[in-house]
Design a protein around this nucleic acid. Structure first.
Lengths: 224, 224
DNA sequence: TATTTTATGATAGTATTACTATCATTTAAA
DNA sequence: TTTAAATGATAGTAATACTATCATAAAATA
């Protein structure tokens, strides 16, 4: 017996809910593996279809195009992080402790968490790090935003900004700090791996503790 | 009579130096206009060629592909910012003042600066904001990095990190702070324009003063 | 000035991508 | 057991991202 969580997302992200069928879950599972391995530009629905022994046409029945699939994955990820944060901070009252747990949760989340059978959270984390920005850096941002397709990221930012304001109600930039923590985390993991001259932290054996410490340091300094 | 600066970049970025011929300068000029207007994914060499009354083949004689053209533009931009910073901080000895000028320079640089005839710096700034991340978020980062194709960004980060260390020699994250200032500047200008719920700042009439102030506040808090 | 090199234009062609359409077949629901 | 829904198989189209070839124009050099 097992309990699987199902993360529900804005239905503008897909044509048919992929989490409700075997094929749909395969699309999710293998798109994560392929994008992680070969990168988003190289990835396409033909290759994906081949990988899961299906057809291009069938994949297009679930997602309008690969951009929306990426957006789906990224939203799924942030929604999952929000869920983790919720669980991990439950019953914690001190906002400073809460914030510490929040940072831990999104930096090192994919490490030691059970999660969902058709989602490799660690690889999805890699995708968010390497390709996540592409999800909202398009000419269609405004249109997609008005449809609520960035909702998960926004509500996560909102949740974290609230805790930031609890720690220091006078702090003027709770949203900016919240998003900056996410972006910084992703950026510096990426830099450490690929452009080490752009950062001070280093990563060995997928241990992100230095990133965590840096974010703790930044928040502490900024919120005193 | 006029003096034009010429920014020289790693020659792995292009096949033939575009700044040395009329056609090359047209490629730079109109690629900036087209990418700014229609976005990077929609942009291609055929459309560009048509715009400048040339041919696709001719454009390909200057740049291997549109990704390298983008990388060229982004490097050009950072190199230009570095040049501005150099001039603006010349003869300034107080590192805190220097850092303030640096932030001013890269946030509001494209506003009131002369620049180069074939480059619309303000639109190029927009491109860096909206598409800049795509220049290094590819599967070829490592290879391109080893060829030095991110050199301009790195040397800018290096220069700024030095000033940060002058302000506070004990600060542990001079490189991370330097790059974070750039990324934050770009991100929050973008957020203010397209995803306002993700930031606290707002922008009216292309006035980035709130971004500047936020970055001043962050650096001050972090470096005391 | 003549000549040779170099840069650009004109045109064509190819493989891949990003889809859309149609029909047959399998699977699930009523 | 009939009907509906989901998937597979196959084909096709317009656009993209190039490469190749040859002609012509412009610039450099002898």
């Amino acid at each position: 017996m097992s309990v699987e969580i199902k993360i529900s997302l804005n239905d503008g992200l897909y044509i048919k809910e992929p989490q409700d069928s075997k094929l749909g879950r395969n699309i999710i599972k293998y798109s994560i593996l392929l994008i992680d391995e070969f990168g988003f530009e190289t990835f396409n629905f033909k290759k994906l279809a081949k990988e899961i022994n299906s057809t291009e046409a069938s994949v297009y029945r679930y997602f309008e195009n690969k951009h929306l699939l990426l957006l789906f994955l990224v939203n799924w990820y942030w929604e999952w992080v929000r869920y983790l944060i919720m669980i991990n901070t439950m019953n914690v009252s001190d906002p400073q402790v809460k914030l510490k747990i929040i940072i831990q949760s999104f930096v090192s989340a994919p490490k030691d968490n059970p999660g969902v059978s058709y989602v490799n959270e660690s690889k999805l984390h890699n995708i968010v790090i390497s390709e996540g920005g592409k999800a909202y850096h398009t000419k269609d941002v405004d249109e997609e935003n008005s449809k609520g397709l960035f909702g998960s990221y926004k509500s996560l930012a909102n949740a974290v900004s609230k805790v930031i304001s609890e720690v220091n109600p006078k702090f003027k930039y709770p949203f900016a700090l919240a998003t900056n923590l996410f972006e910084m985390s992703n950026n510096h993991i990426y830099f450490a791996k690929h452009l080490p001259k752009l950062t001070d932290i280093s990563i060995k054996d997928d241990n992100f503790i230095e990133v965590e410490n840096m974010l703790h340091f930044f928040t502490k300094k900024l919120l005193v």
